[in-house]
Simulated scan of single mutants.
Amino acid sequence: MHDLVIFDCDGVLVDSEVVSNQVLVSNLARYGLNLTLQECMSLFVGGTMVGVRDKARDLGAVLPDNWIDEVYAETYDRLRLGVPLVAGVSQLLDRLDQQDIPYCVASNGSPDKMQITLGQNGLWDRFKDVMYSAHVLGTGKPDPAMFLKAAEHFGSARPVVIEDSENGVTAAIRAQMRCLGFAAHDDGARLAALGAEVFGDMAEVPALLGI
């Protein structure tokens, strides 16, 4: 049995990826880069905002020096209006609690963003002391450092990662951890190709974990 479950945040715990990328589409259009929502999500989901900025510039966006602060402010304002939990997450966390299996969150997003999204859904208290952020660690996925640090903190010998992005799956595989790839918006083929075990409903996770 696994002795630690490491959750990504956006798109795994909270259904925030579509909302955040809608903000990004609108913002980048102002700077000369016109993308569909699907194109934006394909390009940027799971990345750091520094990576998003650099890739957007490579694609032709003329972004100001303070762009990261600007897009974060716009994104946070939109998320404060409300973002739901991914269906089945609360029940899954209750099940892990019943089985005394610890869990944490590891995200390329900032602690401030996680406080907004997890806080409005009653999960902040569950995760605030077991939160790993690329903004704090100084390196993000696909670097496996965040996952390795979490496993070390918990003394975990058999961690499992739940991810929805290619960067996240890559980080888990590099950390030599089992990875469950949550595919809510497509067939998950890209995640499977990287080594994830793809699933589409949080209700499937207990069986996948053997609990």
Rank of each mutant, 00 (worst) to 15 (best):
D69H: 14
S165H: 03
R78N: 03
K128D: 01
L123A: 11
G88P: 07
R57D: 01
G155S: 04
V86N: 05
E197F: 02
Y31C: 06
L123G: 08
T170R: 15
D100P: 02
Q22C: 12
L118I: 01
E204M: 15
N34Q: 13
G200K: 13
P159D: 00
L118M: 10
G181V: 10
Q120W: 00
Q120K: 02
M202F: 04
V45G: 04
A193R: 06
S156G: 12
Y103P: 00
P142F: 13
R158Y: 11
D100R: 11
G140L: 08
K113R: 15
A61D: 10
Y132T: 07
D10M: 10
V136Y: 09
G188F: 10
D8Y: 02
H153S: 01
D69K: 15
C104V: 08
S16F: 06
V19N: 11
Q91W: 03
L13K: 03
G138V: 09
G138H: 14
L118N: 06
L208N: 05
V45K: 14
D77C: 09
H135C: 09
V169I: 13
V14K: 06
S165P: 00
V50R: 15
D97F: 02
K149M: 08
G82I: 06
Y132Q: 00
L79C: 09
V71T: 14
S26M: 06
T36G: 10
N27H: 14
S20F: 04
H2Q: 06
L180E: 07
L93D: 10
P159R: 10
D143P: 01
L24H: 06
G210F: 10
A193D: 08
T75D: 07
L137H: 15
L191W: 01
Y103M: 09
V89K: 00
L24F: 07
T117Q: 03
C40P: 08
N167V: 04
Q99D: 07
I162D: 11
Q98V: 13
N21D: 10
H2W: 01
K55E: 05
V25C: 07
E17Q: 12
I68Y: 10
W124H: 12
I6C: 07
R158V: 05
N21W: 07
L123R: 04
R57M: 06
V169S: 13
L81E: 14
I162R: 13
D143G: 04
G200A: 10
T117L: 03
Q115I: 05
V160N: 06
Q176Y: 12
P102Q: 08
V136P: 05
L79D: 01
E17R: 14
Y103G: 11
R190Y: 03
N66H: 13
A183M: 03
K149S: 07
R174V: 04
V52R: 12
V14P: 00
L209T: 01
R178E: 05
C9L: 12
G119S: 05
V25G: 04
